[in-house]
């Protein structure tokens, strides 16, 4: 009896230690994400005096002056709207173009398939600044300059490689027999896709769409070069915050972060599902 407890005790100790380590790890990782956002929140909701003073409080003052300033700031809401429109269009375009390419890569054998996959990746290796001038010239000639659609096109090319590769792996995870079974049960290629394949990859497609959204939302270079009147939020803030006081910089950052957070929170179910797709 005593022997047993003596042997069992160190085992529980190590298990306990492991558990503490695990909890500590979780706390550190959460803090890594939450703390900067929390500071951003505090400084956004503080009066300009508090922002510039030291030490900083840990509880926000709920002073909405900075935010109301932004709300009234000319062009601010338009920029926010533009950002949402461009990111939304990027999301839709990159899935509409990327998913069929991913499907083809996963289901069909064709000449140059490997080269095609490599080229998709290589588009990411091409520096955007190098393209900026010819692109701007081309956009001005075609009348795409300073439009949300033109910018969405550029952002789509940035997001597309990810969309193709993510959907490729999603489709590959779905056994071809499921589609074949659907074909024998009265489906065409298209209905088999909509009734069987699409519901199964929906979580993954959503995750890949979020990715495209975030890429577009964060992109500033192309946005700054290709738009003047119809600036997106990033380009607008880049232009205006450089010379602004600190509290407005915080508020600007906050405005940039929050919509993306809300969006990801809304679709989090799909993001989590991406790692647990059950296909058998």
């Amino acid at each position: 009896m005593t022997d047993a407890t003596a042997v069992a005790a160190p085992a529980t100790d190590t298990r306990k230690a492991g558990r503490y380590l695990y909890i500590a790890g979780v706390v550190v990782l959460c803090a890594w994400v939450i703390v900067p956002i929390y500071f951003l929140l505090i400084n956004t909701l503080s009066s300009p005096e508090t922002v510039n003073s030291y030490p900083k409080p840990f509880i926000p003052e709920f002073d909405l002056a900075s935010l109301t300033f932004f709300a009234k700031f000319a062009g601010m809401l338009t920029a926010l709207k533009n950002s949402v429109i461009v990111a939304g269009m990027t999301m839709i375009l990159s899935i509409l173009i990327g998913a069929p390419a991913g499907y083809a890569l996963s289901r069909f054998e064709f000449r140059g398939k490997e080269l095609f996959r490599l080229l998709i990746l290589l588009t990411r290796a091409f520096p955007l600044p190098l393209l900026a001038l010819p692109l701007a010239v081309f956009f001005i000639r075609t009348g795409l300059d300073d439009t949300t659609f033109g910018l969405a096109l550029v952002h789509t090319t940035l997001a597309l490689p990810f969309a193709v590769l993510i959907t490729f792996s999603l489709f590959s995870g779905i056994p071809i027999e499921l589609e074949e079974a659907a074909w024998t049960l009265g489906c065409t290629r298209i209905t088999a896709f909509t009734k069987v394949v699409f519901p199964l990859i929906l979580p993954g497609i959503t995750a890949s769409a979020i990715f495209a959204f975030v890429i577009s939302w964060n992109e500033v270079f192309a946005a700054a070069v290709l738009t003047i009147e119809n600036r997106t939020l990033t380009a607008f803030l880049l232009q205006n915050l450089d010379t602004s006081p600190l509290h407005l910089k915080f508020a600007g950052g906050f405005i940039l972060v929050v919509p993306a957070l809300i969006f990801i929170f809304a679709v989090r179910k799909y993001l989590f599902a991406m790692w647990g797709i059950a296909n058998r």
Binding site: E177, E180, A181
Partner: peptide, 8 residues
């Protein structure tokens, strides 16, 4: 089918 192909 051999591997059943039951829709998950």
């Amino acid at each position: 089918f051999q591997n059943y192909a039951v829709f998950p």
